[in-house]
């Protein structure tokens, strides 16, 4: 099981802040492909991954990063702090 979190407009498009997912995905990109195949709302949210960032266990990562041993994956748009 992996905990998947969504923030900002990604959360709004998908319609929930977090969910537990049973997956065999090897990389973030594989997980994204699995999610997109689920429903339109996921497909829309992930239609342009260049507009998204991903964090693995609360550290920024790339979409090609492996998921082995990862407990928490978060998807969000570029950050706008300050």
């Amino acid at each position: 099981m992996i905990e998947v979190l969504y923030f900002a407009w990604v959360r709004e498009r998908i319609g929930l802040p977090r969910e537990s997912i049973e997956t065999q995905a090897a990389t973030v990109a594989d997980l994204v492909a699995e999610l997109r195949a689920r429903e339109d709302r996921y497909d829309m949210a992930f239609s342009d991954v260049s507009a998204l960032r991903v964090a693995l266990d609360q550290e920024l990562a790339g979409f090609d990063a492996p998921l082995a041993g990862v407990r928490e994956v978060a998807f969000f748009p570029p950050m706008t702090g300050g």
Binding site: P77, P78, T80
Partner: peptide
């Protein structure tokens, strides 16, 4: 500190005005 806070700290701003709400783009 400011430069890194802007784009490396996970915060997202949403503005609400007369025309509704929208996320601030990076």
């Amino acid at each position: 500190l400011m430069d890194y806070l802007k784009s490396r700290a996970p915060f997202w701003k949403k503005e609400t005005g007369a025309d509704g709400a929208s996320w601030v783009a990076a």
